[in-house]
Amino acid sequence: MEIKGKVFVFGDDVNTDEIIPARYLYTHDPEELAKYCMEDARPGFGKREDIRGGIIVAGENFGCGSSREHAPISIKAAGISCVIAKSFARIFLRNCINIGLPIIEIKDISGFKEEDIVRVDFNEGIMENEKTGKKYEFKSYPDFMKEIILSGGWINYAKNLVKGEKDG
């Protein structure tokens, strides 16, 4: 799998209240949530046309705070194709794996500017900033997580298990 897109840069400790503020949690409709994606970190972000297919690049502890799955759902529904960060908060990472939003953890992520173009090769575990030519390597997921991703998310994985138990 390969992804190419425009970069949007965010800082450290971006929390789920910034990604999707609680005042919009009266709904769980992805299209609606998409409009307010990153609203309290960057007002109006979710309504921009040019973020479709884009890639979020952030610092440490991205997605900290609440367990709301609305956060990765809003990012995915807004058309963001991948989130790259120095590190992710645990529940956010879990939610991304479960719903199938690609994320990458890279410790040294320096040298990204807003609107750089980045190419991510998931098979090779390499991404490249096409503006600067700088290449970054990343580790692939542990086997268990890979299985979840390959099944198309946790629900599909669970479906296969439930089916397997019945068949067996």
């Binding site: 799955e69 879990r94 939610n95 946790w154 629900i155 669970a158």
Partner: peptide, 20 residues
Amino acid sequence: TGVGSTDIAGVYMMGKAWFK
């Protein structure tokens, strides 16, 4: 521990969740 809604759906389906 806190998890996401999809994890809870998984419990509704099969009573189980995954942990590291």
